[in-house]
Design a protein around this nucleic acid. Structure first.
Lengths: 156, 156
DNA sequence: GACCGGTTACTCGGATACGAGGTGTCCGAGTGTGTTCGG
DNA sequence: CCGAACACACTCGGACACCTCGTATCCGAGTAACCGGTC
């Protein structure tokens, strides 16, 4: 199981946009900050726009900015926007295949125990992600980091 | 993010092997039970053998059996054996790239806050998986299911 | 009847193709800005 | 000097290739059981 690197990109970009208060930042600037392929990063930021986490303004001096205050954006929102809302584990109901064919349908009214256990674990993961916001990341980060990012972006 | 289907296969096979108490079951039989490609299922069972969850006995009347009692096999063990022990989220330290080049190395002694938050969520996921064993799955499963599996496997 | 050797059939195990999804790139549509011309 | 129209440059947005990883398959090495022959 492997999570796409776009999640890390999206979170770092959200953190940067949170520090640069409501100032539109184009993709090229964010890509240069982290040395990432600009076009591909843009593709990922579009996913965040579709999830209503960012807002995009076209034209000159345009770019991306946060759609909500940082305290209202959870890590779960960002992960779901980029990786997709589907669960990682998807029960294919293989218990009903092969030896299970022909058994009365009423036997399978209860959910597969494996599916239940897996969903329980993934729910714990989601709860932990939903309990943390971009604002929390800003609070735990060292104060000098925010200043360095603001200074680097203010330099023309 | 998507979890391989081999996890579901491995868990179902472990559950079946737990019900058929220490009776060696060949890959072909397990594949027929769930209507799965036999050779590919074998590949995944080999991963469970490497993780010392199953033991394999070659030759006629051979097959796979559990290496430990079901209460000593957690879901985390099975998932780690098949999906790999690495974390899903891997911090690439992009904060040190681009704008971060040239900053004193001492600034990055503290772990990346995003990495910390992600690891925390994944730790919750792992804890939940580690708290459940194959024996728990046996207990929560309806009693008729165990009988049906035993009957299907005893039929030659 | 018991023991031993050879044969057979069955099992796992790793090396080998195929395909989907993620990664990376490109070019066009749309918009705000800056300039320039006229009043 | 002020206003408006124009051209420009910059931005996002979706459509198009590449490449890694997961999926699927095959064949060979090894072993236990079985059968026949011998003592």
């Amino acid at each position: 199981m492997r999570m796409g690197e776009g999640v890390e990109w999206g979170l770092h970009c959200c953190l940067t946009l949170a520090w640069l208060d409501d100032e539109p930042v184009p993709t090229a600037r964010l890509a240069a900050q982290f040395d990432l392929p600009p076009a591909y990063l843009n593709k990922r930021l579009q996913a965040l726009v579709r999830a209503e986490i960012l807002t995009s303004t076209p034209g000159a001096r345009g770019g991306f900015r946060l759609a909500r205050p940082p305290a209202k954006i959870t890590l779960m929102d960002v992960v779901a926007a980029i990786e997709g809302p589907e669960d990682a584990f998807r029960c294919a109901e293989i218990r009903q295949r092969g030896a299970g064919t022909g058994t009365p349908a009423g036997e399978f009214r209860k959910r597969c125990g494996i599916d239940v256990a897996m969903r329980r674990a993934e729910l714990a993961w989601r709860r932990e992600l939903a309990s943390q916001t971009i604002a929390d990341l800003m609070a735990t980060a060292p104060p000098r980091a925010a200043d360095r990012v603001r200074r680097w972006h203010s330099a023309d």
